[in-house]
Design a protein around this nucleic acid. Structure first.
Lengths: 200, 200
DNA sequence: GTCTATACCACGATAGAC
DNA sequence: GTCTATCGTGGTATAGAC
């Protein structure tokens, strides 16, 4: 626990502000001067905490993935005995929590990763692969249990699901909408689709 | 038709190169010097064709939306008498064509719009709203015809579908994968979901 | 741990020759 | 229609005082 007079100290506070700005303005649009300004210090002072802008960027991305993985693991533990549909719902909700409720890190990773310098991307890829593997395992289990057809291309549909979930950072406002409802809608879409069962 | 000795002349060629670079490096990461370099001219010369970087950016975005709308209209004309599922498939395929087969404009719009200057975004929003309205109309028809349940929140599921389709620019390689297959997978996901009908 | 000061460079943009 | 040359600004990063 941090001391009471430093609610968000040092690296933590810088990363928090930086992540928010990476989301809003992109990697190159977010300047160190602006980040420092929002933190309440001068640009040069950032270099006491991070060796370069790329180092700060990498730290934000890694934290973002860490947040997703933690959320996934907790959902996994809580839902392992539930039916397939509820397991998916739990993990969708956890992913949304990482995007909207656990700081700006995951959202920064999802929106800014693509345009980051190749050097940064290459250090992050192995970490992000770890998260994808968690989902791959989950879907494989659902397939083996018969909840999903054996013939379904799981990797492809995992990417489609990620697309639906991650794109929500562009339009969902957690102050106006309800994340539980969104998780249910995404799960409905993923599990059952939109087609009417039997035309009345 | 352009004269034979100017395969991609003036504005057209600049926009083509710029769009590609906006995708790769983002709005602020793509510099006018680099764009000019790839076109084969000097940075100052760009200003004969566009009044500012923002003007070039806006032109790319508008073209990207135009491409999507044209693709949608063609798919609409070709599929209007088909069953609901096939109509969706036709429009999904058209959207993917806009993203991957009709130049880099639509992909640039989809990836770079969010971090563009507010001034640019505001001029583009009304145009993009036109495209969303086309999809809203389509889904409303499907709902009225009974193919989709009346209770389905169409706006929400449209956004989820857009998320799945647009995110493919981050992972789909048209040189390796097949766009028809991708369109079918996305349609399957959207229409039927992944759940097994009856456990065997 | 943060400051001031500054180096060096790339950015968008403009002016005028050709 | 493209060039060269250049202006002013703001970028990342460093050095050394405090």
């Amino acid at each position: 626990m941090a001391p009471a007079d430093t609610p968000l100290a040092g690296k933590q506070r810088i990363m928090d502000v930086a992540a928010g700005l990476f989301i809003e303005r992109g990697v190159d649009g977010a300047s160190l001067r602006q980040i420092a300004d929002l933190v309440g210090m001068k640009a040069g002072s950032l270099y006491y905490h991070f060796g370069s802008k790329n180092e700060l960027l990498s730290a934000v991305f890694e934290r973002g993935i860490e947040v997703m993985m933690t959320a996934f693991s907790e959902a996994n533990a809580a839902s392992s005995t539930l039916p397939g549909r509820d397991r998916v719902a739990a993990h969708v909700r956890a992913h949304l929590a990482a995007l909207f409720e656990n700081g700006p890190y995951t959202a920064a990773h999802v929106t800014a990763f693509r345009t980051a310098p190749a050097e940064v991307r290459h250090t992050i890829v192995p970490v992000r692969d770890g998260y994808e593997a968690m989902w791959a395992d989950l879907l494989r289990e659902l397939s083996h249990s018969g909840a999903i057809a054996e013939s379904t291309p799981l990797g492809l549909h995992r990417l489609l699901l990620f697309g639906s979930m991650n794109a929500s950072v562009e339009w969902f406002d957690p102050g106006r909408g309800n994340l539980d409802d969104l998780a249910i809608a995404i799960t409905n879409q993923f599990w059952d689709g939109l087609a009417q069962e039997a035309p009345a």
